[in-house]
Each structure stands twice: as structure tokens, then as C-alpha cells.
Simulated assay, not measured.
Amino acid sequence: MAMRSLLSDHSHYVESFRLFLEKSTEHQCMLEFFQKKLPGIIESIGDGKSTINVLSVGGGAGEIDLQILATIQAKYPKIIIHNDVIEPSAEQIITYKERVAEASNLENIKFTWHKETSLEYENRMKASKEMRKWNFIHLIQMLYYVKDIPATIKFFHSLLDPGAKLLIILVSETSGWARLWKKYGSRLPLNDLCLYVSSVDVEEILDAAGLNYQSYELPSSMDITDCFLDGNKNGELLLDFLTETCNFTATAPLDLKKEIVEDLKKPECSEERGGKYFFNNNLCAIVIEP
């Protein structure tokens, strides 16, 4: 069996992604950022406005989106919020809609979902000649899945209203991800849908474009102890997610598998605490001005 990208099997990807969220502090570190830093970042996005337009690019199942919206709503309790979601997965949109249906205090938020990729949205907007402006746009953990990152950032930056903000969250250059990808990216099944990109790459793009931005490090970890237990189903799923490879344990060459598993234990990637291994899952939040 040949190695193939994890994204070639959507249900397998979702299964491994859900386990990743369960085993990591991914959402917790973002939530802390939204509680502590986001209120200051959105300080002026609704000034003098009767509505606030929010664009979620790659909104997934909505868990993070609702946290962001709660922060905006707390800051501007009387203003109507229009929240548009771009998400290519029908499965994720269904979960998102269920989450909204079950939530309370969303009376002044209007939701619109678009089942499409960010590029499909961009092409549709350009074709319609209706370049709608936004007060807050966020691209969270999605830049790995676009073909042209500079063009994607440039397009969404062009949609910012005066006083608006563009938020990008992705893996930090200090994370185990960045080290793993740098070393093994060329030996893993890259496809058109996955780029090994970290915060340093995005900052270089922003510097080259002359854009003003502020970066925040979000410390995070993931318990990968199961990855070192032979035949452990969770460990195999986590290895799939770490390598972006479908059935990595069954399809990877033995030497590659051995090298990656050994590297995952090293301090460059993980920390050992009480007999468990915690992978460095640090994120970086980058806030860009219009």
C-alpha cells in the first residue's frame, strides 16, 4: 500500500482531528486568547456601526467561531452581528448548525453558511463584482489547505473595512509541528491541499507586503503517549494526524516510521512529564490591520 494524504479520506481525517482536539489543549489555548486578548483587538471594530460583519474562513464545526462571537457580542451587546461562514465540509456545517440551534443568547447574530473553499469564495466574489467589506475576518488553522498563501492573505486583507481586523491562527515556528514538517515534509505524501506552513512563513509574507501586524504566542500541548504503544488505535490515529498521512503505521516505510517515532520523543518535539509525552502544539495568533 502506498502512502497517501490524510485529506484523501475525509471521514478518517475528521476522526483523527477529533482525537487531536481531545488529546490537545488546542481549543483551550485559543479560548484563553479570546478571553484575554481579543476584547482589546476588537476594541473599535463596531464603533458607530449598526451592524458588525464577521467572516469565518474555514469555520469547521463552529466551536471556535461561537467563542469569538461571544466575545464580540459581549463588547457590542446591542449591535446586530452578521456571521458568514466559509466551510467546504458538509459534515462540519451540519455540526455547526446543530451547535447554533442548541446555543442560547444568539438572538442578535445572523448566520449564513457557504459550502465552499476559500478559493471558491474568492472566485465567486470576484465574478459577482460585489466585494463585500467586513469588520472582522478570521482564518484559523486553515492556511495549510490553500494553494497560494500570499494571494489568499492579500484577498481577505482587501475585504477589511477601515478599523477592521484580520486574525490568522496557525502553528508557531516554535512548535513540534514546524520541526517535524521541516525535517520530514519531503518524505510525506504532500498533495495540493496541504502545505507545511508555520507562523514564520506568514510573517515573512506580511513583511514582504508591508502590512502592519501583531503576533501572539499561544502555548499548547498534546498528549502523544499512545503513539509509542504498539497496536494502539488512538496512537495510530494521532500519528496519522501528525504526519498528515492516511494509515501511516500501515503504509509508511519502516525506516521513516522508526525515525519519526524516535524524533517525537526528543525535546525538540515533545516534553516528558510523569512517564507521558506531550507534543509541543504551540500556536501563533497574528492580527493584521487594514
Rank of each mutant, 00 (worst) to 15 (best):
V100P: 01
S221A: 09
T71V: 15
L239F: 00
N108G: 01
K233M: 12
K257Y: 09
Y216K: 05
N282T: 14
G210R: 10
C284Q: 10
H10K: 11
N247Q: 11
E262N: 15
K154D: 15
L166Y: 08
K233A: 14
G62W: 01
H157N: 13
F17H: 12
E91L: 15
G58D: 07
G60A: 11
S158T: 13
E98W: 05
S215D: 09
E98M: 12
Y145L: 03
Y13T: 09
L242K: 00
L264D: 00
Q141N: 15
F155W: 14
F111A: 05
T243F: 02
Q141G: 01
T245G: 00
R99F: 13
K126F: 05
D161G: 04
C227I: 01
I45D: 03
K78L: 10
E32K: 11
K97I: 09
K133P: 03
V261K: 10
L106E: 04
S118Q: 12
L256N: 05
H157G: 13
Q73D: 10
V197Q: 10
H138Q: 14
N247V: 00
P162Q: 14
M222F: 00
E289C: 12
G59S: 14
Q35V: 08
H12M: 06
G235L: 05
T174E: 14
Q73E: 09
Y144H: 15
C194P: 00
E262K: 13
H157K: 14
L167N: 07
E102K: 11
K276Y: 06
I81C: 03
D47N: 11
H27C: 06
K133V: 07
E203D: 07
L238K: 00
H27A: 04
G59A: 09
E43G: 07
E203V: 07
K182T: 10
F155Y: 11
G60K: 04
D230M: 09
A90N: 12
K133H: 07
K165S: 10
S104C: 05
V146S: 07
E91Y: 11
R187P: 02
L180M: 11
I68S: 00
